[in-house]
Design a protein around this nucleic acid. Structure first.
Lengths: 358, 358
DNA sequence: GGAAGTAATCTAAACGTTTAGGTGGACGGT
DNA sequence: ACCGTCCACCTAAACGTTTAGATTACTTCC
């Protein structure tokens, strides 16, 4: 079967391609109801489906939104994507996923290649969970592709770009306060690399809390995956003369997982010997042994907000273009939003009362 | 900044668009090294990036692979995607994610719209975690878009299509045998809808095991999400005269989650009062309370196999087309693979010995 | 020196859409 | 009967690439 084109529909219906195009468009003005019916019938008979590449070329439109992520080892990504997908579906845009730091190891080459790819396919917009290289941000700007950061901040040199983030400093502070309220005075922050920019503010919050409450703080950096966290924490505990902390703060999902595994393997009791608090809630947190106290960031809501912000920017861009103005993305101050995190208290921190959630 | 086209590069370099095109192509034959340098320099100076829509239109090629999923409430999806993404990246194809059953509720309209969309964008191939409507399979066939099913089977009317599945019948059997070995004789299978075709074989295996070992079996169908599972199981237990089963088999991740939540909320001890076995391993299974015995299907390996199979088919297709033959996708018998599941014994089934994993 | 070959380059026609600018006919008002 | 309006429709030119076929310049060989 040869793929039917608009010309075929034109031939079968006996109407010109112009009329066919008009009849099949969103807003079929200038076409009699009867003609349109003939066109639709012919299209159906032939199994005609428009060629998007040709449409995009001619109309100079973009249709897909790329999500740049370090996703796949981090479970919050599922909720985030759900939020993004659900919101974007309504606006009729496709979601393309580009994982540039699979398994927690980041490579600049993959980042560059990915950006090139996005530009080649003339993406409509980008949502990124990672800070990107300045060079690549410049490229996106030149090509007028709007970007929204989620979870992570834009890099220091481009702080005005839209970003939906958690109030990470306050979150770190909050965690620290809670640990202090239990009387713990030696803390360990098991952290992922700074490439994920949430790290910076979270650490700052924790650090200030430690100072304020006179706790001792060790920050331990691990690759952003479970095995790395496991190895890093094991290595720390095995070092000669090392003393385990009284409380452990796990920076994100993989860190939590690694930490729980290490503690369980060594028979260290949570929370009696070491208390644990994690960042980023996830479905199973309440069913772990013991149920994990986390600072929850509501990833789905963040995803929804990011998608909405991006949609607004893209829509503005299109109307600006239609009225002949510059199609540069127009960012507003309100495009930077902070979402408050919430401490979900379960038992790993030492609290008795477990909140009833799932 | 106006977006530079090939014509601009041609003007700046002083060479024709033909030479520019050749010089920038993968295999720059018929161009002097010097000319090519001039072209590359001009392209770089202008910040030229080829327009993929134009390329696709002219070359009649496809570049992106769509993953159709019911993903986002099911955690095995992460591992699956990791397998697919990693494999496909190497072959230079983009991955597009289309979620047609978010939250476990499926809608045929979304399925149809998604398929239309895939055809419009002339996708190179499809990987689907769900059985699709016959009508849509016909469409994909007409448009010569190859498809590989993962996890799920193709629908009954198209059994010859490629599929990478777990040996679900054997898996069900295996679970049944293990429960029987503990002496449990009343089982409850908490299942998701048949739309996810793994359901059928899993149930058959369990059913036959129940017969073989003389156990009583109740099958309870729930929407494919956590809340649905919670409600369904609660409803069952609350029914007048209902007796809780001695063993509960949870059909997949959301079912496990719902079941664990219900049992914990009601203070029913696992495994002493009700033993639990789940399908599909996930990262946290070993850290739950109690650690969950599961039938693991190695989703990442399945993803890798699916992506490899699809890549082979797409490559064949292209070479066939280049040599003037029919570009219909050519499926081989070996494209149907079954991956063996493995019973990972932890404690929720009643076993004492816990395997040390993660 | 000239025929014949070869390699580098060019010109121009596609690919499948959308859309500016025209054509022609029906209608109504004078 | 004439002019002007409107409307449905058409023709043809784009959009940014790739590529078949033509052209040119340069070698090589007799």
């Amino acid at each position: 079967m040869k793929k039917p084109t608009m010309r075929d529909v034109s031939r079968v219906s006996g109407l010109s391609v112009y009329t066919v195009s008009r009849a099949l468009s969103e807003d079929p003005t200038g076409v009699t109801a009867e003609s349109r019916e003939r066109v639709v019938a012919a299209a159906k008979e032939l199994g005609y489906v428009p060629n998007r590449a040709a449409q995009q070329l001619r109309r100079n439109t973009r249709s897909s939104v790329a999500v740049i992520t370090s996703s796949t080892s981090n479970y919050y990504y599922i909720d985030l994507m759900r939020g993004i997908q659900g919101t974007l579906r309504d606006s009729g845009r496709t979601v393309v996923v580009a994982d540039i730091a699979a398994e927690g190891y980041y490579s600049p080459e993959i980042e560059d290649a990915t950006i090139q790819d996005l530009i080649q396919s003339r993406s409509a917009g980008v949502i990124s969970t990672l800070a990107l290289r300045q060079e690549n941000l410049d490229l996106l700007r030149d090509w007028q592709i709007p970007i929204v950061f989620v979870d992570s901040q834009p890099p220091a040199t481009a702080r005005s770009l839209p970003a939906i983030t958690m109030a990470n400093y306050e979150a770190g502070m909050q965690v620290g306060e809670h640990l202090a309220s239990h009387g713990y005075d030696s803390w360990l922050f098991l952290a992922y690399p700074v490439l994920w920019s949430t790290r910076f503010e979270r650490e700052r919050g924790i650090r200030e809390a430690a100072e304020k409450f006179g706790a001792e703080l060790v920050v331990l950096e691990s690759p952003n995956n479970v095995d790395g966290a496991f190895a890093t924490l094991s290595g720390f505990l095995d070092a000669p003369g090392a003393t385990p902390p009284r409380a452990l703060i796990a920076g994100n999902n993989p860190m939590i997982h690694g930490a729980y595994s290490v503690l369980r393997d060594r028979g260290i009791a949570i929370p009696d010997e070491v208390a644990v608090v994690g960042f980023d809630d996830f479905a199973w947190a309440g069913l772990l042994d013991p149920p994990l106290t986390v600072l929850d960031e509501d990833s789905e809501a963040i995803g929804v907000k990011a998608a909405r912000t991006l949609t607004r920017i893209m829509d503005d861009q299109r109307t600006a273009e239609d009225s002949g103005q510059s199609p540069s993305p127009h960012y507003q101050p309100g495009d930077q939003q902070e979402v408050k995190g919430e401490l979900v208290i379960r038992r790993s921190c030492g609290c008795q009362s477990e909140v009833t959630d799932d």
